[in-house]
Simulated assay, not measured.
Amino acid sequence: MRDPKQYPTALTIAGSDSGGGAGMQADTKTMQACQTYSTNVIVGLTAQNTLGVQGAHPVEPDVIDAQFASIMADFDVRAAKTGALFDAIRVQTVARAVKKYELSNLIVDPVMVAKGGASLLDDAGVAAMKEDLLPLALLVTPNLPEAELLAGMAIKTEADMVTAGNKIQQLGVPNVIVKGGHGDGPQVKDYVLLADQEFWLTGERIHTSSKHGTGDTLSAAITAYLAQGETLEAAIKEGHSYMNTIIAHPLNIGHGHGPLNQGNWEVQRNEI
């Protein structure tokens, strides 16, 4: 039962990014910036930096179960999100825990395709996500390559985004955001299909190499606002506004695809 005296708390169920740009680290930073406390279940460990991923090591299912048990025994989790889940076994382990603990306000960020196009979830994992996890979710937030996998179609136009959103909704998840960041043009357009309405969100396309963790950050911001009691529509719009703000103020970190500025820090140039 929710205790109104408890500070708004959310849960991220994701992999660990040793470079701090994506995964659990991006989620935690984002929730903190959006004034929500973050707990976490680590599904896998990665060795990575801004140049790429050098290694990935999934966590054993019993360790995932133990993390869920610890968190749910103590914290008033009001919203949760998933990120990279590595394979079908981990997807199914997470889905069982979501059902066991009756987690509500679940957002699925279906991490399946890397920015360079590499697959991050095999066919069995994609099938498990469709069959076991999406029907438990309040919202799913695929980018264009992920939406193509979930909808089973190519997406070339805005009309295709609408069609794909409806196909994904038919998988059992009532609300869908098809993100247009992988598209072209001066604006980024996201198609939002809710159970009772649809609309588009737009933002200026910022040309920067510091975009690592954009999907994690948007879904984490929406999760944070849901934990605070916002409606889904309001949480989506506030999360989108937050993203538009921070992506315009990149940080100079690393030598490859750098992280987002989740804290919205003033950009400083240190000269030695």
Results as ranks from 00 to 15, higher is better:
166 N>S: 09
133 L>E: 02
89 I>R: 15
63 V>W: 14
55 G>I: 12
84 A>C: 13
194 L>A: 02
159 A>L: 08
140 V>E: 12
97 A>R: 14
84 A>S: 15
154 A>K: 15
181 G>I: 03
82 T>S: 12
105 N>A: 09
179 K>V: 06
82 T>G: 13
174 P>L: 00
126 V>Y: 09
56 A>R: 15
106 L>D: 02
188 V>Y: 02
84 A>R: 10
169 Q>K: 15
114 A>P: 04
96 R>P: 00
128 A>I: 11
176 V>I: 15
166 N>M: 12
125 G>K: 00
112 M>S: 09
58 P>R: 05
116 G>L: 06
71 I>Y: 05
103 L>M: 13
191 Y>M: 03
143 N>E: 09
161 M>G: 04
139 L>C: 06
100 K>C: 10
140 V>Q: 11
122 D>A: 05
145 P>V: 05
133 L>H: 04
102 E>Q: 15
109 D>P: 13
160 D>Y: 01
133 L>P: 00
104 S>E: 14
157 T>D: 10
128 A>P: 09
182 H>K: 03
69 A>W: 07
109 D>C: 08
130 K>C: 12
168 I>M: 05
89 I>H: 11
187 Q>W: 03
161 M>N: 04
94 V>S: 09
61 P>Q: 14
68 F>I: 11
74 D>I: 12
165 G>P: 00
125 G>R: 02
142 P>I: 10
116 G>S: 15
93 T>G: 04
72 M>T: 15
154 A>N: 11
77 V>A: 04
114 A>N: 03
184 D>Q: 11
180 G>R: 01
74 D>S: 14
55 G>T: 13
59 V>K: 08
96 R>N: 12
187 Q>S: 09
137 A>W: 06
187 Q>H: 08
107 I>M: 10
129 M>N: 09
